[in-house]
């Protein structure tokens, strides 16, 4: 009797907690949709920030996150491969793995300030590359950790089978292990991308912002997140509406990437 009662209490409490979490999420989504819906029109996608549009900042955000991915994914994957396939139980690998885990939980603003000190101040001002580097630094530990854990799911016999056929260790890793872990690795990259595409803090003191369309990464560089931050603080209705529109777009984007990831990673039925 007592146990049944306890059971009921626990179920009720956890259901309530779940409902609370979901309702906040829904609240955010609904508010964003309503406000965003009223503020989004085609004009936003065709003009730049200087003309109250978001074109340059959306593209800028993608360019920053895209280049960060191009840098961060190979570095992170190679480190993850080293950890799982070469270093596996060595002291050094343990240290790197732990550091990487610590880095993953480092507040992104700390990374922003670090990059500010290293790549902004010495180079005489805000620049796009500094933003890219900050995002890449944020990304690397995520990729390291997913690579590491995805490779750990590949059965050891598969590696041995490759070696037993006369493949070298490197050939086994690049041809067999990576392809066995392919879906997990792609998922990891997408999640890392989704994580950095919505970041503001690391960009705030690095790439800052730019009202105009630009490919010049050595100057201040436009990004959606930093724009939202500035627009929301600016006391004018147009700016605030634009901030809502930007937030809605950003949320949809991240949601979309996460959904794709879900879809890809859905375990496929055999045969």
């Amino acid at each position: 009797m007592n146990r049944l009662l306890l059971n009921k209490i626990v179920i009720t409490l956890s259901t309530l907690a779940a409902l609370m979490g979901i309702s906040f999420l829904l609240w955010i989504l609904v508010t964003l949709s309503i406000r965003g819906y009223h503020s989004i029109d085609w004009h936003i996608f065709t003009t730049d920030l200087v003309n109250n549009g978001l074109r340059n900042v959306i593209i800028g955000q993608f360019i920053l996150a895209g280049i960060a991915t191009v840098i961060g994914v190979p570095v992170g994957m190679m480190a993850g491969i080293y950890l799982r396939e070469y270093g596996i139980n060595s002291k050094f690998a343990m240290i790197v793995r732990n550091l990487s885990d610590v880095m993953m939980s480092a507040p992104s603003i700390v990374i922003g300030i670090f990059v500010y000190g290293i790549f902004v101040v010495p180079f005489g001002g805000f620049n796009g590359w500094a933003g890219v580097i900050a995002l890449a630094i944020l990304m690397i530990p995520i990729v390291v950790s997913t690579t590491d854990s995805m490779l750990s799911l590949v059965p050891q016999e598969l590696r041995e089978a490759g070696i037993a056929l006369g493949a070298s260790k490197a050939q086994v890793i690049y041809k067999i292990v990576l392809s066995a872990a392919k879906i997990g690795l792609i998922t990891g990259v997408l999640l890392a991308f989704a994580r950095v595409i919505g970041e503001t803090a690391p960009l705030l003191f690095t790439s800052a912002n730019n009202n105009f369309f630009s490919f010049g990464l050595s100057n201040q560089y436009p990004s959606l997140t930093v724009s939202i931050y500035h627009l929301a603080l600016f006391p004018s209705q147009t700016s605030q509406n634009l901030a809502w529109a930007g937030s809605a777009i950003l949320t949809l984007l991240v949601l979309f990437i996460n959904l794709i990831t879900r879809f890809i990673f859905k375990p496929r039925k055999q045969k």
Binding site: E157, A161, G166, A167, I176, A180
Partner: peptide, 28 residues
């Protein structure tokens, strides 16, 4: 590597490589 090309091995659990049937054979 030469040794392993002279002495092959079959494991307890089947270990097909994640590639096509043909590529599994041509790999080695």
């Amino acid at each position: 590597i030469n040794l392993r090309q002279r002495i092959g091995m079959i494991f307890q659990k089947p270990t097909p490589f994640p590639m096509s049937i043909k590529d599994n054979i041509t790999y080695g």
